[in-house]
Design a protein around this nucleic acid. Structure first.
Length: 504
RNA sequence: GGUCCUGUGGCCGAGUGGCUAGGCAGAGCUCUGCAAAAGCUCGUACAGCGGUUCGAAUCCGCUCGGGACCUCCA
């Protein structure tokens, strides 16, 4: 169906993508833990996999995209009581646990919408799949790979490692794991330090709790993904994505659980995105260096020089390869902002080239065809697919789109005659920009000027200014432009006598 | 300590051994009533030291620096 190559974290090499069921793709991506507000770091996986989803769809695959909401809260915070993060905070904020979870889920959805990410096909919650998780744990016990102690159930990693390749995904060596695993609460009841919890007995103060065959408790962190992925995508599916920080232990454990339960390796292609760093360090709770998305959008954070539009962040993320780290910085963000504006304006100009509105039509025939230019344009467009097929190289895709910008501006400003490129090439450019910019990269313009009323008022002002300019009444024309500038509206004179405007 | 990744011009970043990625900032020029925008031109960067090679940012070794995971984590 395509020549798409994906870097598979499991094999550590690029592999040609071949779906299990021809024409269909099952993709699971680890979603957010909604015990708190999403920060800038969270934008990376969801934007990355949104583009993966969009591209697979563009290639013609019918994709079932499953992304979970972790709302059951996790535990085992070192040194503390086995207290659920969510329930603890709930007490502080005097909210019901589910009320809190709902609040952050809504906030997450709001941010994802602003990023223009397409909602997943299914967005299952951990709390909504307690039954499935319990069922899976039962199965693991009956298979002999899990054991119960004091109302908790653990996965027997040592036994699994003896028969399967535990640690392959994360490059871990079993012997090292046994030595380097830290002392954690509840460790004593495990048979081995490397074992992980499938079900935890809930202490009395623990608010989130469900009855189970082993008593009242709550599910372990890794089991939800295995249970929900199996339920909606089957015992083996095509793509599993998530942040690199989830490689171990989360994804390694998922493989172990699912393999025992379903008797096959659950995932064909593992895709992991790299981290967003700030001053070279990963953004994360433990580092206390996070900038929340609400703060990014509002500019309300000491590290932010200004507010950044969600599309600027999306652009920023896509300008680098998903497997590289991306370093946060005001200068870099502002570069993205200007870059996006330039690209988007060129895209809008492209839309009217060759039409009566954009070109007078009189000088359309002027100038000889520029074979070289035509070839260059076609090459740049052809390469877009090649780059994307090479493990989603969005950075290169954008570089090529930028190389087309001077061509578009040149034609618009009549530095390059329209006739330099063939009508077919012009059409190809128009279609390509729409498909790549909007459909695949999922970008949108930043300007909020889609207001009918404002549009009408601006048309009027532009009209008056044109008249003033015609009479060489520069006092009036400058007044209009300067006053608008103060209001945050940039008015620009075009080469062809027209005027364009946009919000600064 | 173990495993792994990484070090590119002012900033962010592509880079498959030989063919100036790209964006932003900066400089000059053109266009323009002025401005903005736009167009053209410019910086010869690859942590350091060795090695392999006709040729290395790209492969190997060492040194120095940064980071990730091993604990919740996108």
């Amino acid at each position: 169906m395509s020549d798409l190559k994906i870097y598979n974290s499991y094999s550590r090499q690029k592999e040609v993508f071949t779906p299990i069921t021809p024409g269909h793709v099952g993709m699971y991506v680890c979603g957010p833990t909604v015990s708190g507000e999403s920060h800038l770091g969270h934008s990376r996986p969801y934007i990355t996999f949104d583009v993966v989803y969009r591209y697979l769809t563009y290639l013609g695959y019918k994709v079932r995209y499953v992304r979970n909401i972790t709302d059951a809260g996790h535990f085992e915070e070192e040194g503390r009581e086995a207290e659920d993060k969510i329930s603890k905070k709930a007490l502080l904020e005097r909210l019901e646990p589910m009320e809190l979870v709902q609040k952050y889920t809504n906030l997450f959805h709001w941010a994802m919408d602003r990023f223009n990410t397409i909602p997943p096909s299914i967005e299952p919650t951990a709390t909504g799949h307690i039954v499935e998780q319990i069922e899976m744990i039962r199965k693991l016990i009956s298979e002999g790979y899990a054991y119960e102690v004091n109302g908790s159930v653990y996965f027997d990693v040592k036994k699994y490692a003896a028969n399967y390749d535990y640690g392959k995904l994360s490059g871990r060596i079993m012997d090292d794991l046994l030595e380097t695993t830290r002392e954690l609460e509840g460790q004593s009841e495990k048979r081995d330090l490397a074992d992980f919890a499938l079900w935890k007995n809930a202490a009395p103060e623990h608010i989130m709790r469900w009855p189970s065959p082993w008593g009242v408790g709550f599910p372990g962190w890794h089991i939800e993904c295995s249970a929900m992925a199996t339920k909606y995508l089957g015992p083996q599916f095509d793509i599993h994505g998530g942040g690199m920080d989830l490689l171990f232990p989360h994804h390694e454990s998922e493989i172990a659980q699912s393999t025992i339960c379903n008797h096959q390796n659950p995932v064909r292609y593992w895709i992991h995105n790299n981290m967003i760093t700030i001053n070279g360090r990963k953004m994360g709770k433990s580092y206390n260096n996070q900038i929340m998305l609400t703060q990014m959008f509002s500019g309300d954070h000491p590290l932010l020089e200004k507010a950044y539009h969600p599309m600027v962040i999306r652009f920023f993320v896509l300008q680098t390869h998903y497997r590289s780290t991306l370093d946060f910085g005001n200068e870099a963000l502002q570069a993205s902002e200007k870059g996006l504006k330039r690209l988007w304006e060129a895209y809008e100009k492209l839309g009217v080239i060759g039409t009566p509105a954009g070109q007078a039509g009189s000088d359309l025939g002027a100038g000889a065809p520029d074979i070289e230019l035509d070839k260059k344009v076609r090459r740049l467009i052809r390469e877009l697919s090649e780059f994307m097929n090479d493990d989603f190289s969005t950075a290169k895709v954008m570089a090529n789109l930028f190389e087309l910008v001077p061509v578009i501006n040149g034609i618009k400003d009549k530095v390059i005659p329209v006739s330099a490129i063939s009508a077919e090439t012009l059409d190809l450019m128009k279609i390509s920009f729409r498909v790549w910019l909007e459909d695949i990269l999922g970008l949108k313009g930043i300007s909020d000027a889609d207001n009918q009323l404002l549009q009408g008022v601006m048309d009027l002002l532009v009209e008056i200014r044109k008249e003033a300019k015609g009479k060489k009444d520069f006092a009036t024309s400058d007044k209009i432009r300067n006053q608008l500038t103060q209001l945050g509206i940039l008015l620009k004179d075009e080469k062809d006598g027209g005027m364009s405007w946009g919000l600064a």
